[in-house]
Nucleic acid binder design. Structure first.
Lengths: 126, 126
DNA sequence: ATCATGTGCAACTCTGGAGTTGCACATCAA
DNA sequence: TTGATGTGCAACTCCAGAGTTGCACATGAT
């Protein structure tokens, strides 16, 4: 049973971890609003130090949610919708999967309630 | 007029926090696979104690991702697709928003590159 | 050249939460 | 009743990471 049905090591992993932090989400909001700004600028809009912002940006960058480019002596960061979109799709697919399974289970339970012999739940793999 | 467009205090918050933990995701996978089982059963399928599982289930329950019902002396847990679906939609909308903003910014930048006077970015409200 | 501004690195503190163990309480079976 | 199985609560350890400060290095302006 090599259970890898949902892709545990996918980029989704990093995105979820990155989005778990409220400060990071706030940072993304700010970044989407301001367009392309530096870590220093972002820090001015938040109650935390620049270094804290830089660390958060590093996490977001690793997750593919933001990207930074050098412009002279400063680094401009920008939001990246692709990773978020991919995660949204993954999540939606997972929800559908759950729905499917729940429907199956409910069907079996109803059949069993009518006195029929309950068939085994996990038979047909996809 | 505090930050409202992205709904920071929505149920999404709890879902993201819950999904951030790999063990919790594994627990959800397991729960979707087994249907309706107890915390004890889940713990048997994982390298952690029953108590740890119970704590995780509490977090997942608070996020609306699972629900438990008593059956005699045991508590059966079940997966709940609704919260996940809602979060997926929220995420998708957010990604679209980013896309929209990026497109706007890029358009402005291109216009500026042609030597035209850069028009102000944020004028129209919703 | 000098000064100012901004980034990058490193060490440090501190809190939250993941996991553990032990035991008390509740429920089903004999 | 007694014994077995399962849940619930509380105290505890441990570590990842959020945030800080200080300083060195790089770049733009004068």
């Amino acid at each position: 049973m090599t259970e890898d049905q949902h892709g545990d090591v996918s980029p989704v992993d990093g995105v979820l971890a990155a989005l778990a932090d409220p400060t990071r989400r706030q940072l993304l909001d700010l970044l989407a609003e301001l367009g392309e700004v530096t870590a220093t600028t972002l820090a001015e809009h938040l109650p935390i130090s620049r270094q804290a912002v830089v660390k958060h940006l590093a996490v977001l960058d690793a997750a593919g949610l933001v990207a930074g480019r050098r412009a002279g002596r400063e680094v401009l960061y920008e939001v990246r919708p692709a990773a978020l979109n991919a995660t949204a799709r993954w999540m939606s697919a997972l929800a559908s999967d759950w729905d499917r399974r729940l429907a199956t289970i409910k069907r079996i339970a109803e059949a069993a309630e009518r006195g029929a012999a309950p068939p085994d739940a996990e038979s047909g793999g996809s």
